[in-house]
Simulated assay, not measured.
Amino acid sequence: MVRAGCLALLLLALPAAGVRAETVYKCVANGQTIYQQTPCTKQQAQQVIQLVDSAPADGRVAPMPTPPPRDNGAADDAPPPPPPRPLPELFLCVRATDGKSYTSSNGHPDPYVAPFGVLGVANNPLAATYGSQNAAVSSFPELNRGKGNAGAVATSNYVWVQDQCRPMSAAETCQALRDQNDSNQKAIRNAFKSERAPLDAKDAMLRSQLQGCG
């Protein structure tokens, strides 16, 4: 107990004196053990003890190391999701001949010729058109100059017409794409294997376009 107490007192005294000791000598002579900072005499058995002193030489306490930045998990390191694919530009068009609507990617369709009678301008029966003295004798306008009545002109002549289109909203575009996809899926189910190539290509295109609908 005395020997252990001496070593403890020596260790406590070293920082208080401001001396940084790293080596202690254990001296044994005549059954007595002494711990000291200087080497033992020749008559004493000596044992060198290396002490680890973690305190700075000036007695100040070293600052705590800065902790590493907090890891919020792999989710913070993950790349952001890609932006939604833009919707294709579609137009809702109305046919000039019958007033029926259809969807098109072309908002300015080319004009085309149609019989004047299908436009609903003249509704005379065929008997009145071809049975009168001035009835048309040919469907070509250049052969009917100066002949025919309004009914003849309506049923035997052609005029230039053009469908009218407007841009579709995002909601209308998505609904049109879903309708096309449903129709194409039905066609794929009913098609023979040799007929599925163009339908599968259309299916891939519609799936890509529908990604912009969420």
Score class of each variant (00 low, 15 high):
P82K: 09
P82H: 08
P82L: 11
P82E: 09
P82R: 07
P82S: 05
P84L: 10
R85Q: 06
R85F: 10
R85M: 05
P86C: 04
P86K: 10
E89L: 12
E89A: 11
L90W: 06
L90H: 03
F91K: 00
F91I: 03
F91V: 01
L92G: 01
L92T: 00
L92K: 06
C93T: 03
C93G: 02
C93V: 07
R95M: 05
A96Y: 08
T97R: 13
T97V: 15
D98F: 10
D98M: 06
D98W: 12
D98H: 11
G99R: 13
K100P: 01
S101Y: 02
Y102A: 01
T103S: 08
S104Y: 00
S105A: 14
N106D: 15
G107E: 02
G107M: 08
G107V: 09
H108P: 01
H108W: 12
P111Q: 11
P111K: 12
Y112D: 01
Y112P: 00
V113F: 15
A114R: 04
A114P: 00
A114K: 07
A114I: 14
A114V: 15
P115H: 11
P115C: 05
P115M: 13
F116L: 12
G117A: 14
G117N: 10
G117H: 15
V118L: 07
V118Y: 01
V118I: 15
L119K: 03
L119V: 11
L119S: 02
V121E: 03
V121G: 02
V121P: 01
N123C: 07
N123W: 14
P125S: 06
P125H: 08
L126F: 12
L126C: 05
L126Q: 05
L126R: 12
A127C: 08
A128K: 10
T129C: 07
Y130T: 12
Y130V: 15
S132Y: 06
Q133S: 06
N134Y: 12
A135N: 04
A135W: 07
A135H: 12
A135F: 11
A136N: 07
V137Q: 08
V137M: 08
P141Y: 13
P141G: 02
P141F: 14
E142D: 04
L143Q: 08
N144M: 15
G146Y: 13
K147T: 12
G148M: 02
G148E: 00
G148W: 01
G148P: 00
N149W: 12
N149C: 07
N149H: 10
A150K: 09
A150T: 11
A150L: 14
A152D: 11
A154G: 08
A154M: 09
T155H: 07
T155K: 05
T155W: 15
S156D: 09
S156W: 01
S156M: 14
S156N: 13
S156C: 09
S156T: 15
S156P: 00
N157A: 11
N157H: 12
Y158P: 00
Y158G: 00
Y158E: 03
V159P: 00
V159H: 02
W160E: 02
W160I: 09
V161G: 01
Q162D: 02
Q162L: 03
D163Q: 03
D163L: 05
Q164V: 14
Q164S: 07
C165G: 02
C165T: 06
C165V: 07
R166T: 11
R166Q: 08
P167R: 12
P167Y: 10
P167S: 05
M168Y: 03
M168P: 01
S169E: 01
A170Q: 11
A171N: 03
A171P: 01
